[in-house]
Write a protein that binds this DNA or RNA. Structure first.
Lengths: 256, 256
DNA sequence: AAGTGGTCTAGACCACTCA
DNA sequence: GAGTGGTCTAGACCACTTG
């Protein structure tokens, strides 16, 4: 087929294929990702089988499999032998586990509610420009919210999200939701992130919100999360009193 | 070939193959790992090409490639198109970056020397049994060492390593080396790990070793590193004064 | 120019899941 | 039992590196 581009174009739906030097299996992965982010394939539902997809996109079964395996490595899909492939849910507990680094004495994450203290849209300041790699005069949402466990506050979060990626956050969305949920609603695929952890004394207003003594030591969690494409998507500064076996759990993995 | 096991055995050197239900490409990966850990293939040298290896081990080129790709994903090998495949060096800066989580204000890791304060072999205590999943009465090495940067101490490390994995540590090896270097000398492949981070006041003897005031706050880094096979290999408790923009850097990755 | 990995294809048979 | 992914094979041609 590849030697006969004319028929190849007729036989498959990836019409841009012959104009691109991007490997076919990557283009195929992109087509898969596109179907997910466009909502054509919903979370938790099975997708067509390998052969069917290969025919649809006009690639060989082996190439389709390579693309599917890649999408799986990128956590877009999961597999069950004999069952089929599923669109994986970025909101699953497994994913939440990964980003909930504050743990109790038992090593489990602290569940509970989230209370939004304030939410406004403004122009970026200098620190935000640096951390989120934005341009001057871009707009951002600033959210301050409080995480509670057993009705008691355990973390104050100051969150900054570019308006470009998350438009109409204040009026159309629920800022108390998990960031991964929000990102999904916006069609933003979150990839990795980096977090700087330190401990320090607590500012008076923060002590107030967290309902602790002004002399308390808190962990400061300065986190930037990137999209799958590598663009900074969220900057979050978390502050969390260190009490009762509470700790930060970091998973060490081999480097990329 | 697979339909004729008699000739298959003659044609390949993975003689245990037909007795195992482990997939062939995994057995092939194991054979690759074995050649590295046995020292048959040295760090930084090229290995035979795909076709050659496939013939040597009596598997198809595609299966060999799948095994090689897997070994690469596991960081055992690297690749250069047209160049060949190389045994990768677990001691490279890239790997060191990943496990050096304490960073200065500039985000760079703190380089310097390591001073061994004490080293002894004893029987495990209760905490060690739990953290390293050992049995009672097993033996371990305990190493206390001090990390210095610019001649000044910045971290005190208490390290526990099972004697079973690291025999004759005291007499035949240099305990001031990086743990990854030690592990490599023992043929132990380190995989991932987990680290619990908290902050607390400092014990008098620790304050002494770190040359700080007894009232100083330190980060406590409680880390267990596992082998590639998932067995606990090292437990390290690090203590590090929080001063001058120093912080703990955690990389957030998507879950497995 | 020779040799290596990179991509792509085609098709076989097995193991598991599900109706 | 039909359908899915899991494994394994065989071989083509391309792109890059190296001598």
């Amino acid at each position: 087929m590849r030697e006969l581009p004319e028929t190849s174009i007729v036989n498959n739906r990836m019409s841009s294929r012959r104009f691109s030097s991007r490997p076919l299996y990557l283009q195929t992965r992109d087509a898969i990702a596109e179907r997910i982010s466009s909502g054509e394939w919903k979370q938790h539902t099975t997708i067509p089988d390998e052969g069917e997809l290969a025919r649809e996109l006009g690639v060989s079964p082996s190439t389709m499999r390579k693309a599917l395996d890649l999408a799986e490595a990128e956590r877009l899909l999961t597999r069950h032998q004999g069952g089929g492939r599923f669109v994986s849910d970025p909101l699953s507990d497994k994913h939440a586990e990964r980003y909930s680094c504050i743990r109790g004495r038992d090593g489990k994450r602290l569940g509970g509610e989230v209370k939004v203290l304030s939410l406004l849209e403004t122009t970026v300041n200098e620190r935000e420009v640096r951390r989120l790699r934005l341009r001057l005069r871009e707009r951002v949402h600033r959210v301050r919210r409080l995480r509670l466990t057993g009705g008691k506050p355990y973390m104050l979060e100051d969150i900054v999200m570019p308006t470009k990626l998350f438009p109409r956050l204040a009026t159309h969305f629920d800022a108390s939701q998990r960031l991964s949920v929000l990102a999904q609603q916006y069609g933003v695929s979150l990839g990795g992130g980096e977090e700087r952890v330190t401990a320090s004394g607590v500012a008076p207003d923060v002590a107030d919100a967290l309902e602790v003594e002004p002399a308390t030591t808190v962990m400061r969690l300065d986190r930037v999360i990137y999209t799958l494409e590598g663009k900074p998507a969220v900057w979050r500064l978390g502050q969390c009193p260190i009490v009762g076996g509470r700790h930060y759990l970091a998973k060490l993995t081999r480097p990329d």
